[in-house]
Amino acid sequence: MDKAQKDLHARYQQMVKEATPQPNRWKNLVMAFITGGVICTIGQLFYNLFEVIEPSRLETTAVTQAAMIALGAIATGLGLYDWLAERGGMGAAIPVTGFSNTVTAAAMEFKREGYILGMGTKMFVIAGPVLVYGILSGFVVSLLRAVLTGSLF
């Protein structure tokens, strides 16, 4: 690419930047805070409920996670979660319900190409990177902790 073309592209990028409406960051921030907060409050309610039945912390956490994942999947199936995310942004994407949504949405979408080559292959098409890099960073952090503290647990 010659210099004239580079300059043209740079100038055009500037024009595009000026023509593109900026997102309302404060509104998005507040909406994300409320949406994420409500989802987490529901999670806490589940936790408190399960704690009564099974007081072990590990077990209660696991069951709460499972319940929230199920809730996210059901909301996705009912077509509610994309509506929520359109308004709540990252507040809906970051909690585990959002993760559940990525898997469910892909499963719903690709079921049309069959259960094996469609849904089976593409279910993690969005969630895949989260798993890969989630596990990788978990491993690195655990390794660092093991080295620094001299203990695996």
Partner: peptide
């Protein structure tokens, strides 16, 4: 959407552009 972007029900906040 499914060919060029994401599954329909995915948690995406669309940009103004």
């Amino acid at each position: 959407e499914r060919q060029f972007r994401y599954p329909i029900e995915l948690n995406i906040q669309h940009k103004k552009s």
